[in-house]
Nucleic acid binder design. Structure first.
Length: 555
RNA sequence: UGACCGAUGGUGUAACUGGCAACACGUUUGAUUUUGGUUCAAAAGAGUCCUGGUUCGAGCCCAGGUCGGUCAACCA
């Protein structure tokens, strides 16, 4: 567990509740998604917060689906949300649906009517909108606002019975049309929707609005701390009003600032636009900040949890540098990812003094961070591939890989010297002729040679081939909430966010790599096998993140 | 010309509730290294949005500003 000495403002509130005894030292949170889309890393922040608080205070955390709008919701999303929460490493105490409470909610609505605190409004949606006023101008009361309790009850029951057309009537709270808080201007509580609900089927044709249902559901579940994002701050007076009118258990709502990540977008609307507009390939496209995208990209639950822990919780708007997320995944993967060698852009090297037809196997550490894991055998021979980047004909100062006449170590093998550069008619370098120093073999080096650089390689005679997908940030600017005038946020999509290497050379050991397994390609970064590996009958790797490269950064 | 919320290094979060502004990421430098990775060591970088007040003492309290965010779906 992390050594978190500093308490965030929510923990401080909980502590004060525990001192005052407001909730009898009980802590019961909940994660309340609507099953109408996929979870993203912003949700992960909320999940880690809610479940984390429950763990820290020996409390409970529910998973509740706020499924009050049958038109947009589906069981498919319920499944994917469950799956993502579980994958993140959390197990909820109770699993509930707002729709479980439809009967209770309906009873409460009638109760409000009987108290004279709610009425059926015959106005159209347009009329209601038009008479709501603006933040600075009070709204106008509906002509139906003062119907009798009997009439309201009758009308509401007939709404429930399906006697009226969709959109013809709604149930509204009777609060204050001139309230400075727009949400208190007689908000809609129930609307008619003759839609089939994914759980209650055709049992209902009226459905509660989120604002009516949400706080009441928390109350039903005995939630102590209803944690939500900042935009619901102005809704709180309404939730409190409802609870007060009904005289029921009162949870404490606490709002925090949602996560924003640099170089990406987090809103459901924009994510949907990226997927539907084919800017990315799917909801689990590894470039997306969706949980499924991050998973496919090779992010681990531990790294995401650690990230959520490090970013903290507060109320001010924030935009977290993706570099922090990348730090978290590198930190995790460095410890656990087995190493292998892969050459993305191969340059053939012929070792002229290595006997033709001869091969051998060299020993390579599985993970230098964990030597106890032992080593693997890697084939070596007269012809190998090295990275094109690891040779320069005219190197800048400070370059210490291979150059004409220069020497480097082939990792876990020998030191070589470049003797000759072969080019095609166009002047492109096609091959290098090198010599090796037999006495410089790794582990038994008696050559006395000192080289500055060590490069990775793959033996040509036993190289496997793989497709490698190199991902980069999805956008070219860090802050997508700050778009210059006349521009659209989609104008800043990074055209190079995906580069496909169709034929990389990798250690043949990798043919056995299982789907989703995570590797470090020495000197290149962390990669995981993509599910497409199955389909295409060829190895496909996704680059999770590069290794830090202080040389490349400066050049 | 409304209500609510917020403002601390480049980024994010702290500061025992009034006592020398700290930690992490990022950046830079050095050491180690058969990954220009890791690890280790160090440095630079804010005087806490502004103005005034209370106080021996203010990032924390008070007053007034400024700037930013949120709110006007029969969405959540």
């Amino acid at each position: 567990m992390e050594a978190t000495e500093h308490k965030n403002f929510i923990e401080q509130i909980i502590d004060s509740h525990n001192e005052s005894g407001r909730f009898q030292k009980r802590v019961h949170t909940r994660f309340p998604p609507e099953p109408n889309g996929y979870l993203h890393i912003g949700h992960a922040k909320s999940i880690c917060l809610n479940f984390g608080l429950a763990q820290k205070y020996n409390g409970k955390c529910n998973l509740r689906f706020d499924d009050t709008n049958p038109e947009t919701e589906d069981v498919e999303y319920v499944e994917s949300i469950r799956n993502d929460v579980r994958w993140l490493g959390f197990q909820w105490d109770g699993e509930f649906f707002a729709s479980d409470y439809f009967d209770q909610l309906y009873q409460w609505a009638e109760q409000l009517i009987m108290k004279g605190k709610a009425y059926v409004d015959d106005q159209s949606a347009e009329q209601i909108a038009a008479t709501r006023g603006t933040p600075t101008v009070p709204g106008k009361e509906s002509p139906f606002r003062n119907r009798s309790v009997e009439e309201n009850l009758d009308l509401f029951r007939r709404m429930k019975a399906g006697e009226f057309e969709e959109g013809s009537r709604v149930l509204r709270a009777k609060i204050d049309m001139s309230s400075p808080n727009m949400h208190m201007r007689d908000p809609v509580l129930y609307r008619i929707k003759k839609a089939r609900h994914h759980r209650t089927g055709d049992r209902w044709c009226i459905y509660p609005m989120y604002d009516f249902a949400h706080g009441l559901c928390d109350s039903i579940e005995g939630i102590t701390h209803s944690i939500c994002t900042l935009e619901f701050e102005v809704h709180r007076p309404l939730y409190d009003w409802l609870i007060e009118q009904l005289g029921i258990y009162h949870p404490q709502q606490i709002e925090f600032a949602r996560l924003n990540l640099s170089y990406t977008v987090m809103s459901k609307r924009k994510l949907l636009e990226l997927v539907e507009g084919k800017y990315v390939n799917s909801w689990d496209d590894p470039r997306l900040p969706t949980i499924s995208g991050l998973r496919r990209r090779g992010y681990t639950p531990a790294a995401i949890r650690h990230f959520a822990d490090k970013i903290g919780v507060a109320k001010r708007d924030n935009i977290i540098d993706v570099a922090l997320l990348e730090f978290c995944i590198r930190e995790d993967l460095n410890k656990i990812a087995p190493r292998t060698m892969a050459v993305l852009r191969p340059l053939k090297v012929v070792i002229t003094n290595y006997p033709e037809g001869q091969t051998e196997e060299v020993s390579a550490l599985i993970n230098p961070e964990m030597p106890q894991l032992g080593s693997r055998l890697v084939p070596f021979g007269r012809e190998i591939y090295i990275e094109q980047d690891d040779f320069m004909e005219n190197p800048p100062k400070g370059y210490f890989r291979l150059t004409p006449g220069g020497e480097v170590r082939l990792k876990y093998a020998y030191i070589i010297r470049c003797e000759e550069v072969i080019k095609d008619a166009a002047g492109n370098i096609t091959e290098l002729r090198c010599i090796y120093f037999p006495e410089s073999k790794s582990g038994s080096d008696t050559s006395g040679k000192k080289v500055k650089g060590t490069i990775h390689w793959v033996a040509a005679h036993e190289a496997a081939s793989a497709e490698v997908r190199l991902y980069d940030r999805l956008f070219t600017i860090p802050d997508l909430s700050d778009i210059p005038e006349g521009k659209d946020w989609k104008d800043f999509i990074n055209p190079h966010s995906l580069e496909v290497i169709p034929d990389a050379k990798i250690e043949k050991n990798m043919l056995q790599a299982s789907i989703g397994s995570i590797w470090q390609f020495e000197r290149l970064g962390y990669f995981c096998t993509d599910p497409d590996t199955n389909k295409s009958n060829k190895l496909v790797f996704n680059r999770t993140v590069t290794l830090k490269d202080t040389w490349a950064k400066a050049h």
